[in-house]
């Protein structure tokens, strides 16, 4: 049953078997994707034709490795830029929202807080289309009435950033709020009492206290943005992000090039995940 209680042999081994299968289920698609990135075949599948690094480094007519594939490299670059912009902006906005709802008192606080949670339960597709529609309406309005053409209101890099921010900020807000709730306001008072000014209190006490939450929320925000598809799809201009570009390639047939990109993504995100988890583990001990 649990560690301290006895249970039968069948139950124990049956349970172990189930959990083992679960982990196999969890990892098999990722493992196979990684393995096939090194298969010397023009098609991502078995049989194994021998080891090759062509899908990373080749620059031939029929085999282009990731590092020579301009289409995917530029998509990767767009995705990175988007993710950096979104995670920084969401971090600022989400943290401000956390402070607003944790430390300030004002009328209509409860309904506004409720509103700020909704982006997480609105399907991403709907966020995407409604922001697309609203920016289009606004763009038409500005053009008709004032004759000005506002770049940002057309599907473009910054519209994608705004669209992703709209729900990633809520996520940041929840993570930062959770830590802020545990913050003892007496620490701020202690600092004031020892002669610190208010900006010094924020810089020396509050922000360092929130640091683990900010790092954690920031890196998850980065990934959420980097991987976002549903919202991005509708807001994207001519610069395609990596998930959208990959989707188009996967839909129209695939080469081991995609495995190679997937391999790079898997390895780098796993590393990022591990660093992040280990860091949060360390902060838990403190």
């Amino acid at each position: 049953m649990i560690r301290s209680l006895p249970s039968g042999k069948t139950y124990r081994y049956g349970y172990l078997l189930y959990v083992s299968f679960f982990y196999l289920f969890l990892f098999s698609p990722l493992l196979i994707t990684c393995v096939l990135a090194f298969n010397d075949s023009n098609f991502p599948g078995l049989p194994w034709e021998g080891f090759t690094l062509d899908w990373f480094f080749a620059d031939e007519q029929y085999r282009t490795g990731v590092f020579h594939d301009d289409r995917n490299l530029s998509a990767l670059w767009v995705s990175l830029q988007t993710a950096i912009a979104v995670s920084l902006l969401s971090l600022i906005l989400g943290t401000m929202a956390a402070f607003l709802f944790e430390q300030e008192r004002f009328p209509f606080k409860q309904p506004l807080f409720f509103l700020s949670l909704t982006p997480l339960v609105i399907p991403g597709v709907i966020l995407g289309i409604s922001i697309l529609l609203a920016s289009n309406t606004a763009g038409l309005y500005f053009e008709e009435h004032w004759g000005i053409d506002i770049e940002i209101l057309r599907p473009s890099f910054w519209l994608v950033v705004l669209g992703q921010m709209s729900f990633i900020s809520t996520f940041v807000m929840l993570v930062v709020s959770a830590r802020l709730k545990k913050f003892d306001p007496a620490l701020e008072e202690a600092a004031l009492n020892l002669g610190a000014t208010r900006p010094e209190v924020i810089r020396l006490i509050t922000i360092p206290y929130l640091k683990p939450a900010l790092i954690g929320a920031g890196s998850v925000a980065f990934l959420m943005s980097f991987e976002n598809f549903n919202t991005t799809l509708f807001l994207i201009g001519s610069d395609t992000t990596l998930p959208v570009s990959l989707y188009l390639q996967v839909r129209d047939g695939s080469t081991p090039l995609i495995n190679a990109i997937a391999f790079i993504l898997i390895v780098s995100t796993s590393l990022l995940a591990l660093i992040n988890l280990l860091a949060s583990q360390r902060h838990k001990d403190e």
Binding site: D184, A186, A190, N193, P208, Y209, K211, E286
Partner: peptide, 11 residues
């Protein structure tokens, strides 16, 4: 002031 819960800065 010595606070009721001391309020030493944990970081």
């Amino acid at each position: 002031l010595i606070f009721q819960h001391l309020s030493l800065f944990p970081m």
